[in-house]
């Protein structure tokens, strides 16, 4: 069982390492993730929201819907822990 797990891990790792051949080099400003929407964020976020911290601007404004449900996720987690663990006074 353990050797099977080790085999699965090694195969997955080898596949992923093979996949890294197509990735952009580290720190390349022209890599695909750095060329698309983030250019708009860096250039326009301060003009559009007056927030110098771009991470906060994206988190609170451009991706506000995402952040709202992030708060809902952590709220649900708290309620779930309460429901799983908390006992009534007589228990």
């Amino acid at each position: 069982m353990k050797s099977l797990a080790l085999l699965a891990t090694l195969v997955t790792g080898a596949l992923l390492l093979y996949g890294t051949a197509d990735f952009a080099a580290w720190g390349d400003p022209q890599s695909p993730p750095n060329r698309n929407i983030s250019v708009h964020y860096v250039e326009q976020a301060v003009k559009e929201t007056h927030v110098p911290n771009i991470v906060t601007a994206v988190l609170g404004d451009y991706r506000g819907y995402d952040t709202m449900f992030e708060l809902v996720v952590i709220y649900s987690a708290g309620m779930a822990v309460m429901g799983i663990l908390r006992r009534r006074e007589d228990q």
Partner: peptide
């Protein structure tokens, strides 16, 4: 995080 790195880049907090 490393996909967003740029050589010589500074933090994403700008001068307003």
């Amino acid at each position: 995080i490393s996909t967003g790195a740029k050589k010589g880049g500074s933090i994403p907090i700008l001068d307003k």
